[in-house]
Simulated scan of single mutants.
Amino acid sequence: MLRRFLSVFEPFILMLLGTVALASLLPARGIWAGIAAGAADTAIVLLFFLHGAKLSREAIWAGARNWQLHVAVLAVTFVLFPVLGLGMMHLLSGPVAAGLLFLTLLPSTVQSSIAFTAIARGNVAAAVCSASFSNLLGIIVTPALVALLMGGAGAISLSSVEAIVLQLLVPFVAGHLLRPWIGGLVTRYKGVLTIVDRGSILLVVYSAFGAAVVEGLWHRVSPGDLVLIALVCTVLLGIVLVATLLAARALGLSREDAIVLQFCGSKKSLASGVPMAGVLFPAAQVGVVLLPVMLFHQIQLIACAMIARRYADAAAAAARPLTPATIDQR
Rank of each mutant, 00 (worst) to 15 (best):
E215N: 15
E256S: 15
I195H: 14
R198D: 07
L202E: 01
A230Q: 05
P223T: 09
L241P: 12
V235L: 15
L185D: 02
G273V: 11
G199V: 02
A250L: 15
L217I: 08
L231D: 12
V221P: 02
H219W: 00
V196W: 00
V279W: 04
S272E: 10
V242M: 12
V240I: 13
R255V: 02
G273M: 10
A211G: 06
V196L: 05
P180N: 09
K267Q: 14
T194Q: 14
L226P: 08
P180R: 02
G184W: 06
L202W: 01
L231I: 11
T244P: 10
V279E: 06
G175Y: 09
V240R: 01
I201H: 01
A243M: 06
L280K: 03
Y206W: 10
G191K: 09
A250N: 05
A212C: 00
V186E: 03
L237K: 05
I201F: 03
G224I: 06
L193Q: 13
H219M: 03
R188I: 10
I229F: 05
V196M: 04
V260W: 07
C264D: 07
S207W: 01
G210I: 01
V196A: 08
Q262L: 11
V235A: 15
L261W: 01
P180F: 09
R179E: 04
S222C: 08
K267H: 13
C233K: 07
L270T: 04
A248C: 06
G278V: 03
V227Y: 08
V274P: 06
A258L: 01
R220D: 10
H176L: 00
V232I: 14
L246Q: 11
A277S: 14
C264V: 09
D257E: 11
A243R: 04
G183K: 10
W218L: 05
D225M: 10
A247D: 02
I259K: 03
G224V: 09
G238A: 15
A277V: 05
E215F: 03
S222N: 11
G238F: 11
D225Q: 09
L270W: 02
A277K: 03
L245C: 13
A271C: 03
R220H: 13
G265Q: 03
V260E: 03
G199M: 07
L193I: 10
L178N: 11
L280N: 07
G184S: 12
W181D: 00
V274T: 11
V221W: 00
L270F: 07
G252A: 02
L237G: 11
Y206Q: 04
S272K: 07
A250S: 14
V279A: 15
L185P: 00
G238L: 14
V279N: 10
L245N: 15
V214H: 13
S207M: 02
C264F: 01
V260K: 06
L228D: 00
F263M: 05
R198P: 05
A258E: 01
L280D: 02
Y189P: 04
L280I: 08
I229N: 09
P275Y: 03
V274W: 05
W181F: 12
G224Y: 10
